[in-house]
Simulated assay, not measured.
Amino acid sequence: MKSSGNTILVTGGGSGIGAALAQRLAARGDTVIVAGRRREALEEAITGRERMHAMTLDIDHAAAIEDFAARLIAEHPALNAVIHNAGIMRFETLDARRDLSDAEATIATNLLGPIRLTNALIDHLVTKDDAAIVTVTSGLAYVPLVATPTYSATKAAIHSYTVSLREALEGRVEVIEIAPPAVRTDLTPGQKDREGYMPLDAFADEVMALLQGNPTPAEVLVERVRALRNAEADGAFDQRLKMINDFARAERERSGS
């Protein structure tokens, strides 16, 4: 991925990881379009920042994605990269019959959203030099959090989809995966204040440093996520499954959420 001079779409760019990365990319010299549902949050993310633009996007609906992609290409024909960051995380119980609306919404946003948007943009991206597709998965793609089973499953699926994209687009579009650890954001209630989670600025700074690598790594892994990414290879999956679930439970109890 070029170290500057890109035109990059960042979904879920109005807050959290998306906004933090988008602002850093713009500061280094990229043109960045942040997209999301909430116009107010998008405008706040770009206020006073050069080379940043905002476009609303309902990532849950196929027709809305097609319309968005057409408008995006028309307004920003230099687009050569997309960062699939939009996502939701819902707590669910698995030990009794339940309403599946949270699970279905999570699949629509976290899995179908990136698949549909990539499909809508791929014919454009393959025509661009230095094109890149970046997926944002999670350490939970490798070791699931039992309290958020569908979220963990969608991130595992996007990891697999990313591997397939990388092979299918080899030599034409660079495909990169960013797998965050638990980061202090508003992804779930109280998460922004959980002291045991990685501070957002520290995470974004480490990711940006890794993206500057030449070549850009296929997997962008900050140090704090490596224990999860390598759990099976290390022969420590069961241990780390217990560790991450005990840790997350204790953090939620500590923050009262």
Rank of each mutant, 00 (worst) to 15 (best):
K155Y: 10
L165T: 01
V222H: 02
D201Q: 13
D186V: 00
T106K: 07
F203H: 11
N119I: 00
Y151T: 09
I178H: 08
T154K: 09
K155M: 08
I107C: 11
D129S: 14
E206N: 03
H124D: 11
D193L: 07
P114N: 08
D102K: 10
T188N: 06
S164N: 13
E223P: 00
T188E: 15
R194L: 12
I176N: 07
D193N: 13
S160H: 14
Y142H: 15
N214A: 14
G113S: 04
L221N: 13
E104M: 12
S138Q: 04
P217V: 12
T127N: 05
P149W: 11
T154E: 11
E92K: 02
D193K: 12
K128D: 04
R224H: 12
H124S: 09
A141M: 03
M198V: 15
P181L: 03
F91T: 11
E92P: 01
A204F: 11
D186F: 07
E174P: 02
N214C: 08
V207P: 01
G113M: 07
P189A: 10
L210K: 12
L100P: 10
L187R: 02
E104R: 14
S164E: 10
V207R: 00
T148V: 10
T154C: 15
R172I: 09
P114S: 06
A156C: 03
D123F: 05
I158E: 00
A182D: 15
H124G: 11
L187W: 08
P180E: 02
I158G: 01
K192G: 12
V146Y: 13
V163C: 13
A182S: 14
P199N: 01
D129V: 09
E177F: 07
A218F: 12
Y197D: 10
Y142I: 04
P199E: 01
L94Y: 07
T118P: 00
E167R: 12
L169N: 06
V173D: 08
P144I: 06
P217D: 05
I115C: 08
N214Q: 15
P180N: 05
A105I: 02
L145C: 03
Q191V: 01
D201N: 14
P114V: 06
T137C: 09
A105E: 11
V143C: 07
P217I: 12
A105R: 15
A156V: 01
A179Y: 05
A108H: 05
A156K: 06
I115L: 15
M208L: 15
D193F: 07
L200G: 11
R172S: 13
T154S: 11
P144T: 08
A202E: 15
D186W: 06
R194C: 11
T135P: 03
A209V: 10
D186T: 10
A168T: 08
